[in-house]
Structure formats: C-alpha cells, structure tokens
Amino acid sequence: MTDRIDAKDLARAVQAGVLQPGQDQALLAFLRSQSPSQGNVQLAHTAFYFGALLIMGAMGWLLTEAWMRIGDGALLAVAALYIVSLTALALYWQRRQQPIAAGVLAAAAVSIVPLLVFAIERLAGWWPMDDTQADYHQYYTYVQGGWLLMEAATVVAGLLMLRLVPYPFIVMPIAVALWFMSMDLSEWIYGSPFSWDQRRTVSLWFGLATLMAFLIIDGRTRGDYARWGYLAGLAAFWGGLTMTESASELGKALYCLINLGLMGIAVLLRRPVFMVFGAMGVAAYLGYLSYEVFAASLLFPVVLSFIGLGVIGLGLLYQKRRERLSQAVRSNLPDWLVAALPALRD
C-alpha cells in the first residue's frame, strides 16, 4: 500500500459513503496545504542519497594512497570517528522522524566498516597478505581471500545497524559485501590465479541467488528491503551475463531474450529496476546487430527508430495502465506461482 492519498482515493471514499460529497475536496486541499510539494520532497530525497554516496566513495573506492601513509593507528581513529559520528547522526534524525536521512547515514556508516577492520588487522598483526597488498583501494578492485574478515564484519555490522535504524538502503552495503565475499571465497575453490571467466561465472550465479532471495523477502517485510536487494542482485547478475562472451549468434540472441525476460519481470513485479537493466541489455544486443550484422543495411536504423518509438508508446501505455497490465500478466499464470509472488507495491 502507498502512503500517498490522491483525489481518486477520496472520490472512492465518497462513493462508499465514508465521506460526504464535497468533503473529499476539502480534505484534499487540507492535505496539500499541510505537506510540501512533491517536487521538493523528491529533490530532498535525491540529495540525501547523493550525499551518502559521496561519503561512501570518499571513504571507500576513492580513498587515495596518501591515506595509507598516515599510519594504521591514524587510519583506525579516522574510520572509528566516521562510524560513530554517522551512527549518532542517523539515530538523531531517526528521533526527529526523518527516516530517509537516518537510513542513508546509517548505510554510509556500515560502508566504512571494511576500512576499520583493515586498520585493526594491520595493527594487530592479523593481516593475511604481504605489504604489496596493503592498499585499501584494492579491496574494491581485486579478488583476494584476505578480504574475508572485512566482508564478514560489514555484513554483521549491517545486520546490527538494521536493528537500530530499520531502513532498506542499509541492505545495499550488506549485499555488496556478500558479493565481494562470494568472489573471494571462490578463489579458495578455484585456486589462484582467478581468471576473468571464473569471476563472471561467480558474479552471474551470485546475482541470480540474490535475486531469488529478495524475491522471497519481497512483500513480506514492513519496509521495502527488496528494492535495494534487487539492484545489487541485478548488478551482479547482469554484469556477469553481459561480460560473458559468446561466439555464436544463438548465444547472443539468448542474451537478448534473457533481457527481454527481465523487462517482463518488471511488469510482473512492478519493479522498474528490472526494466532498466533489461532495456540496457536489449540496447546492447541491438547495437551489436547494427555494427556487426547489419552494418551495410540502410534500412536497419529506420526500422530500429520505429521500434524505439513503439517502446516509448508502450512505456506511456504502461504508465497509465500498469495496474491492469500487472494483473493481466498474473491472471495468466498458474495459481501456485501467483501465490508465491510478492504482493504488488505502488
């Protein structure tokens, strides 16, 4: 269910006898006067997420080598100060009934846990790798079994933070840590060196498992935790799928069909993120056809343009009738499958 009430909801309340005629318009005017405009609210929310991503980047994959030279003790102090300060701010804004600001700050705090554990391991002499692998930046770029403690600590910290600040965005750093953990554990399975083919395979299957896990969670929690889980799962699955090379036209066509399937799932679950990734995949396949298969064809760009116009038209149709379309798709599925699917969210 949605927290937003519009004129149609109030009109149905009049028809049901809950409100008297005329009361719906008065109530709607009152609600609009009591709340800020939707554009301002959405802009503020965007600022919250963008600010959190800046913090995550600054203390994560954008951390420069200069920080490695300040010493492990200073690095530990800085990481601890960030985590404590961000957590305190998150709890403060939670008490002030600002759940989004609190949630993104809490997620930023969780994202700095790997840096904290990195410094602790170095100071305590538990660092499992040599000094040439002591650059924290490599945590985000290289698969190594030595990162496992950092990833496990991030998952535990994220779960604990969800108890303090139950906001869905905190799922994102947890999912990323689990993705990294799956890659690093695979090095133990495959051994070293760890090839790109093996990385793609692990990423693809981990992403698929993540999507299935959050499909089970979807609609069964008070907050929409599946939103960010789907994003993390799709990034891993679609990334692994897209980087998998196929020498046959059949394999490339299958790639396109899988992405069309993602677009269908978007309609079924009413989750736009599936549509975004599916559309990127279909666009990549059409780009391949344009540059490789139909490079000498004058007609192909024209046909593709009409397809693009058709897709835009379908998007407009879906925007107006998404409830009917989702219900129509579900009505053609077996009852057991519909029962297993999550309830539709607005």
Rank of each mutant, 00 (worst) to 15 (best):
I70D: 05
I55T: 03
Y92S: 14
T87C: 11
L54K: 01
V78M: 12
E65C: 01
W61H: 09
W67G: 14
W93C: 12
A74M: 12
M59D: 13
D72G: 02
W61T: 05
T64I: 02
G51F: 04
T64P: 06
L91A: 05
L86Y: 12
L86V: 05
G57V: 11
E65F: 10
A66Y: 11
I70H: 04
I55N: 04
L91F: 03
L53Y: 06
T87R: 11
A88E: 10
R69Y: 14
V84F: 13
A80I: 02
D72K: 02
A52K: 05
A90T: 08
L54T: 04
L54H: 00
A79S: 11
L91I: 06
V84S: 10
A80F: 07
W93D: 14
L89C: 11
T64V: 07
S85E: 03
I70V: 15
Y92D: 15
T87F: 13
L86T: 05
A88F: 13
E65Y: 09
I83M: 11
V78L: 13
M59T: 15
W67F: 14
G57W: 06
T64K: 03
G57Y: 04
Y82H: 09
A77R: 09
A80H: 00
T87I: 08
A77F: 14
V78H: 07
Q94G: 10
I70S: 07
R69D: 10
L76H: 00
M56F: 00
M59W: 13
L75F: 05
W67S: 05
A52T: 02
V84I: 15
